[in-house]
Design a protein around this nucleic acid. Structure first.
Lengths: 226, 226
DNA sequence: TCCACCAATTATGAATTCATAATTCATAAT
DNA sequence: ATTATGAATTATGAATTCATAATTGGTGGA
């Protein structure tokens, strides 16, 4: 009996993929700030790997525009101008709109309920003024909406573009007014989901993102001036 | 070992990026068919490079989902199910709709005129039944519309997703009816551009893509059956 | 003192080498 | 004859080595 042993293959993640995730985390968390130069040997020392897999990882991140490779000059964490951010936000807006349309068609009642619970938690974080947990739950809600689309490509593209400026989204502090606005947006998002109104959901998701962009833009301009 | 004398041309662009383009072309042209196994040593021999840059290139293409890497099994040209293609077409549709909205706001009259000339050429290829030149000019028109958006991210994402199934788009033969339909679509695309009607352009671009998907789907299902 | 230029050092680009996992093929057992 | 087993071969994963471009630091000259 030829029982294939491949049935429960143990997870063997290639080194370069592990490094991709590791570096992405370092960049998202802000430990590697935008514009920071990446010294291959330094990171190799730190992670205990040779340059080969690290360089492969850098090439992948470069193709995602998370880092920038300059021939013979090395790697650096990508920086994005306000124009570039606006461009990315426009694209993400289109993706969110599509996500809204698809989600209401395919989401289960259980998933809607789960998002409602996340929503409650997020509101509580807002009321307690806890920024970091708020952002985390916020991200989970958006991820849940994209997961409900059942469209892997859509999810991947969304993650790709979000990751590219995740640090900006996380770091940009919201004014109390903007934060209240965000909560209002999310109330409408949840309502549109519960009514399975795709058009409304697409519209409010897009507007929500536009608000977020204004927050990021204001922060970047203040940063640049300071 | 003999001292390799490299020409200046290839010294400027990193090898792995050249290989990314080279491989992409091979895949788009169909020389490397979907599902084909990629033997590293074979391609290294063919291109006269070592495995290091080729493997870097494969990793980049894998992150674009143009190839699939299986640990210890090697690389293969990615195959896409009809469901995956539909997912990708949905996303491209959203991108095209956004492109339409932005293009009419930012395109110059000269660019519209250039697209009109491309349109004429495309129609002549259609009337003469020249498939390959038709597809080529068709692609140029769509690229021109995306270029008119002035949104680099949008262009990049579009190119990324189209490349992923370019072979399918190229290889799928259109029925005479579908081809006529495509020309009708393009008439409307040009008209919407000339009237700078973003809503109409977005709508017709999306519908045009839906037609294209039906062509590809029909072809794939016939292929699978045959 | 400042600038230009050249040597020394360092970092990156790419090839080669080494280790290990997967496949193939031959042999043996049922 | 067919299938299972195991050695041999092959291909991939990763480290190391080699080559070359860029940077740095110092010296000499104006």
């Amino acid at each position: 009996m030829t029982r294939t042993v491949r049935s429960q293959a143990i997870a063997r993640t290639p080194l370069h993929l592990q490094l991709v995730e590791l570096l992405r985390d370092l960049i998202i968390s802000g430990e590697l700030a935008p514009g920071a130069k990446i010294q291959e040997t330094v990171l190799c020392e730190r992670f205990g790997v040779s340059r080969t897999p690290l360089r492969e990882a850098l090439k992948v991140l470069a193709s995602e525009e998370v880092v920038v490779l300059t021939p013979h000059h090395g790697a650096a964490v990508a920086t994005h101008s306000i124009d570039q951010l606006r461009d990315a936000f426009d694209v993400i807006g289109a993706l969110e709109a599509l996500a809204g349309e698809l989600a209401v068609q395919r989401i289960s009642n259980a998933e809607i309920a789960a998002i409602a619970r996340l929503h409650e938690r997020m509101v509580r974080h807002f009321e307690a003024g806890r920024h970091r947990p708020y952002f985390e739950v916020n991200r989970q809600i958006h991820d849940a909406i994209f997961a409900a689309t059942r469209n892997r490509t859509l999810q991947d593209q969304y993650r790709l573009l979000s990751a590219r400026m995740m640090s900006a989204r996380y770091l940009a502090p919201m004014s109390p007014d903007r934060w209240r606005q965000a909560i209002t947006d999310h109330d409408k998002i949840l309502a549109a989901l519960q009514h399975r109104n795709g058009t409304a959901l697409a519209r409010v998701l897009k507007r929500h993102l536009a608000h977020k962009f204004e927050t990021v833009r204001a922060w970047l301009e203040r940063e640049a001036g300071a």
